[in-house]
């Protein structure tokens, strides 16, 4: 019972990190290269979860995922499932909420690669995926690591969005942060403390990994 919310949080964080990594590579690459007029608008939208109260994002997701909404109706008719108060809904909410934590380090990483490296690879007639996996990503390891760890850690600590769209369903949406809140509400402080200690330990280890590997993202941000 103690470990179920922790395992659910880990599962949510892992799936969210994998999905966001796949989405953020093309997105952050485009943001690092583009001079489009749409770029600042897109950057502002991506960064919104950094400044918005999680309950605001959660509120709009609640409306969007409800069975009465067109998205909720479409998902139900096509996939036979509801997004509200379900694990898939939590994954989508987490991806939106943690998007800037993956995109921004990766964008900084792509910007840190000298233009001449790309041009050298271009002259060697390498295709985009070869350049991405053999040249770009290996030379921005600290940015990739920062993105992965920050996204994972941020999703682990998610509360407001999960509470709004996931509720508190054991084994489905009752993640660690919700479990702490639930146990405190029930005045069960001992169990709440155990959950909290586990989250503190996990968060400390993840940040320790970032700093040990000389996290380029933090370093660049502090310059």
């Amino acid at each position: 019972m103690l470990w179920n919310p922790i395992l659910l949080s880990l599962k949510l964080a892992l799936i969210t990190t994998i999905i966001l990594f796949a989405i953020s590579i093309p997105l952050s690459y485009w943001l690092s290269k583009s001079s489009s007029k749409l770029k600042p608008i897109l950057e502002a939208i991506i960064a919104l979860p950094l400044v918005l109260p999680p309950t605001v994002l959660g509120f709009y997701l609640l409306l969007a995922f409800s069975p009465q909404s067109s998205l909720g109706t479409w998902v139900h008719s096509w996939f036979g499932m509801d997004l509200l108060f379900s694990f898939p809904g939590l994954v989508i909410g987490s991806c939106l909420y943690s998007l800037p934590f993956m995109v921004q380090p990766l964008q900084s990483g792509f910007l840190s690669i000298p233009k001449s490296l790309m041009e050298a690879a271009r002259l060697m007639d390498k295709d985009f995926f070869t350049v991405l996996f053999r040249v770009l990503l290996p030379n921005m390891k600290s940015a990739v690591l920062s993105g992965l760890i920050l996204t994972f850690a941020h999703t682990m600590g998610e509360f407001g969005v999960v509470l709004m769209i996931g509720g508190n369903i054991p084994n489905q949406t009752k993640v660690a942060s919700i479990a702490i809140y639930d146990e405190v509400e029930s005045l069960n402080y001992a169990l709440a403390n155990q959950y909290a200690m586990i989250l503190v330990a996990l968060s400390f280890v993840t940040l320790l990994v970032v700093y040990t590997f000389n996290g380029g993202y933090f370093k660049q941000q502090s310059r």
């Binding site: 041009e119 271009r122 007639d125 040249v135 290996p138």
Partner: peptide, 30 residues
């Protein structure tokens, strides 16, 4: 550019930092 068969020595050398000297040379070859 990739179809012109041109070798280019850049001012900053543009060597791939993640590859050894031999790997840099091998990677350049089609």
């Amino acid at each position: 550019a990739g179809k012109r068969n041109i070798g280019f020595v850049f001012q900053d050398y543009a060597l791939f930092p993640n590859m050894t000297v031999q790997q840099n040379l091998l990677f350049a070859q089609k």
